[in-house]
Design a binder for these strands. Structure first.
Lengths: 275, 275
DNA sequence: ACACAAATGGAATATAAATTCTATAAAAGG
DNA sequence: CCTTTTATAGAATTTATATTCCATTTGTGT
């Protein structure tokens, strides 16, 4: 039995042998994969307690993977802690330095998007008006059926909403334009329903038109869009504004997705209270 | 005398009091600033030897800065090692916990999701292996057609990928199970193509099955999932791991979406270079 | 349902590490 | 140059931690 000497090798071993492990050992393997930092820094008894096992199990665990004892295995986790940290710092350094175009490594791209996503989320916190959110929830609580519509880049948000609303046992119809039947799908909307439309510039023509038509029938429209000047905002009862950050010519969806999620959870609570 | 409780505070203290220190303590201060990792991970006697001093000097050193002993000072160095954003687990735990119902205002819900989303993004930065990202990009660059598959909560990610890949003029097929034709849609996949599968626990059975089948045909599989123990990871050539935060019983998609976006942009660059 | 093997919990033990103590050495002050 | 104070080295001690061992439980095959 030869013990893995690198963190990655150990992870692979943990995964590939996971099935053949006994109950406790499985439990430890899962804890180790979830909390590598604990494995690196904490003492045997502390880890044992957190993972809900006996200290001796940790030693048996280490031995099952070929180490002479827990301490030897811990070294592997520790080495990773050091390597990883320096990687990260180097990336940060290179990010600040050469913002020209040398940074073509994908991991630098990742850093950019992560920073962008964080910025977008912070921005969301600042600009979103809590009253509007409440208004949107109120409108949706009373809806008989929620009609969802979005196209292109925004479509995944509507798609997610359709999944999440179903979880809440809230009836909804996703107008996805499948089979070229965008307006046909929307035709069954009627008083008592609510349209929830999502679109960002450049605004999908079908969505804008549907919003206008629905509004003119006096059916409530809630929208998620990118500012008060959006054609959706003009014709909606409530418009929740999100500003997504653009990085490398692609726009993130973090903020919009988070808003969608919030809307769903807030709606879920409101529904619970109503019942 | 009050002991610095953060790494940065300690560094400042070491620097500012450097002049007034005795010979040995100076020596140790310099070693500590040069080798913070050693200070965090090694034992007193090991550090003593490397720094060329006596073990007892290290204890005096720690006490000179207000700590009860060396171990207490070491905690500060250790926390720095981990603190690259990973109070993650704890922050998330605290978010999930206060479902007491006190926080019934929607804006509190929003704040929780924003915090959760930010934490998930920071975590993504730490745990994503850059090499795996490169591998994934390489596999996708060479693909004739990219087949995308995901179900339920993950579906919006595949949906977004299908939109974004089309923008890159990369051919792709979205296996969405529309019309109950999940496996029928997948039938046309063949050597030269690549399957990109996305699923989180509890893993959609169809997606898992499709991944297995595809792999057994020797067609490359790239997956996005939630850890090395995922059935997707087991049967993929490359698995990109994302840990999503669960707040209020709903899981955010910020990190997964950001990863998807990164993959697309990195792929776009790779395609440009190839041409 | 029984016997056998494997796994587990928890106390007991061994090991290693941190800390204290004291004799000695270096520095400071007169 | 001697005395007093402070710092240091190294051994001794204490404390913390890892590891072993064995009785008990859990699982498995007949």
């Amino acid at each position: 039995m030869i013990a893995p000497s690198t963190y990655d090798a150990l992870r692979d071993e943990l995964a590939s042998r996971h099935d053949e492990l006994s109950k406790r050992l499985k439990q430890i393997a899962e804890y180790a994969l979830d909390n590598p930092n604990d494995m690196a820094l904490e003492t045997v008894s502390e880890i044992a307690e957190r993972a809900g096992v006996q200290p001796s199990s940790l030693i048996r665990f280490a031995k099952a993977f070929g180490y002479s004892g827990f301490s030897e295995m811990q070294k592997v986790f520790r080495s990773h802690l050091v390597e990883n940290g320096s990687n990260y710092k180097e990336r940060i350094r290179s990010l600040g330095r050469d913002d020209s175009c040398q940074s073509n490594s994908s991991s630098v791209v990742l850093d950019d998007f992560i920073d962008g996503g964080i910025a977008a989320l912070n921005n969301l916190r600042e600009v979103l008006n809590p009253e509007k959110l409440e208004q949107a929830v109120e409108a949706l609580v009373d809806a008989d059926v929620i009609y969802l519509t979005a196209q292109r880049r925004s479509f995944p948000i509507a798609s997610y909403l359709s999944y999440a609303l179903a979880q809440l046992d809230k009836r909804c119809v996703l107008i996805d334009g499948n089979g070229g039947m965008f307006f046909e799908q929307a035709r069954s909307i009627r008083p008592g329903d609510v349209l929830l439309a999502i679109s960002f510039k450049s605004y999908a023509a079908e969505v804008v038109q549907l919003v206008k038509e629905t509004k003119s029938k006096d059916i409530p429209v809630v929208s998620i869009s990118d500012g008060i000047l959006s054609p959706l905002a003009q014709h909606s009862d409530v418009c929740l504004e999100v500003e997504e950050v653009e990085v490398h010519a692609f726009r993130s969806l973090s903020a919009s997705m988070t808003l969608a999620l919030t809307l769903v959870v807030a709606l879920g609570r409101a529904l619970d209270q109503a019942a």
